[in-house]
């Protein structure tokens, strides 16, 4: 997905290499190839490829990965904003989720 790039330097993804045991599950579940092995631990090789889906942190056995997961969907975020302001809206626009 190198041909599709979204806004850079916004992701909340962080990897604590001190905690990482190098099991490689993050590498397996990441749909964008963000993680690669680096010696005995993992490293983030494509931070801006991250879409914050949360698959890695959800499956990390030692909680070495932190990310604020969510769905990158404008109408969902609009609905959340409206809900925060206690305005109810039936459904959003072009969002699969």
């Amino acid at each position: 997905m190198k041909e599709f790039r979204y806004l850079p330097d916004v992701t909340t993804l962080k990897l604590d290499r001190e905690l990482c045991i190098g099991c490689g599950i993050c590498h397996l579940v990441c749909p964008h190839g963000v993680f690669e092995p680096d010696g005995n631990v993992m490293e983030i090789v494509d931070l801006n490829g991250c879409m914050e889906c949360g698959a890695c942190s959800h499956n990390c056995p030692v909680d070495a990965i932190s990310v604020n997961p969510g769905v990158g969907c404008a109408s969902l975020i609009i609905n959340t904003w409206l809900k925060d302001k206690r305005i109810t809206k039936s459904s959003g626009g072009g969002c699969c989720c």
Partner: peptide
């Protein structure tokens, strides 16, 4: 399948 919530 590639937009992050922070970015959006």
């Amino acid at each position: 399948p590639f937009t992050s919530p922070s970015g959006v």
